[in-house]
Design a protein around this nucleic acid. Structure first.
Ligand code: MN
Ligand code: MN
Ligand code: ZN
Ligand code: ZN
Lengths: 133, 133
DNA sequence: TTATTAAAGGAAAATATTTTTCCTTTAGCA
DNA sequence: TGCTAAAGGAAAAATATTTTCCTTTAATAA
């Protein structure tokens, strides 16, 4: 099934409208993998010349609330947003800033103090990507 | 040796002055473990009634540049700052928002695509802390 | 199709956050 | 003690994000 149809369904399930602007934002995140506010805004302006930055922010928040996208906080740079998919970890290149998906660790052997209940873990690896070596 | 003396030495090594405001900020981060801008500002105002928020920001940036403190990006909340010490991981309580130090994993079995060079990894565990269960 | 209507978009204003400027004060040193 | 560059304070500027208010439109159903 086509991605855009899936997104439309997800939106409908949350009683959100499938507007062209919203679908375009999802398409951009889909295409880029990880995008920050400004990347989304610059990219969407190519198709929607008069789109408001406020619309981008409002949709980001709406999509976050709906659990359709999530925010990835990256060390030393602006937050990236991505479509929610299977759980995974991230690798950020300290040369080019690109964020890559990597498999999550099979097991995370961290001993928590007694009484602490973990629910989930996120791992961010910093290094140099293939393109930048 | 006293912590404040150590901090003064670290500052001197970076040719930074040991001002009362700067030492107080380090003392606050030392005491709280992890503090955000506003916590630092509210706390330091108790001793330095007329301190400027700009001074807090300027010192945070100076101390970051000097490698004396580091920024911890926490999911869904404002960045926390802490004194640089041994490498460790973090646990954030989704109930109270408190950030705790936890030991870093002994081994992180993440398979990176070939050509990717990892330099360091940070792990953030989200869950419920002892006080909040 | 067409009419209805609540949700969403756009523009501008408001608010929040962070940095810079500019002048005054002071830590560090001779 | 004095000197001086670094740092502090206040305000302004720059940047980032949210809200307001009015217009447009997606979704629904007749
Ligand atoms: Mn990802
Ligand atoms: Mn810590
Ligand atoms: Zn790279
Ligand atoms: Zn807690």
């Amino acid at each position: 099934m086509e991605k855009s149809v899936q997104y439309a369904d997800m939106l409908k399930q949350k009683d959100l409208k499938s507007t062209p602007q919203r679908m375009a934002m999802l398409g951009i995140m889909e295409a880029k993998g990880h995008a920050d506010i400004d990347e989304i805004y610059q990219e969407i302006k190519k198709d929607f010349v008069s789109i408001s930055l406020a619309t981008v922010y409002k949709n980001i928040n709406t999509l976050l609330d709906a659990g359709i996208i999530e925010e990835i906080k990256v060390p030393q740079k602006k937050s990236k947003f991505e479509i929610v998919k299977h759980k995974h970890s991230h690798f950020v290149c300290e040369k080019c800033g690109e964020v890559y998906d990597v498999q999550k660790p099979k097991k995370l052997d961290i001993e928590l103090p007694e009484g602490f209940e973990p629910r989930e873990a996120s791992v961010m690896i910093v290094g140099v990507c293939k393109k930048c070596r």
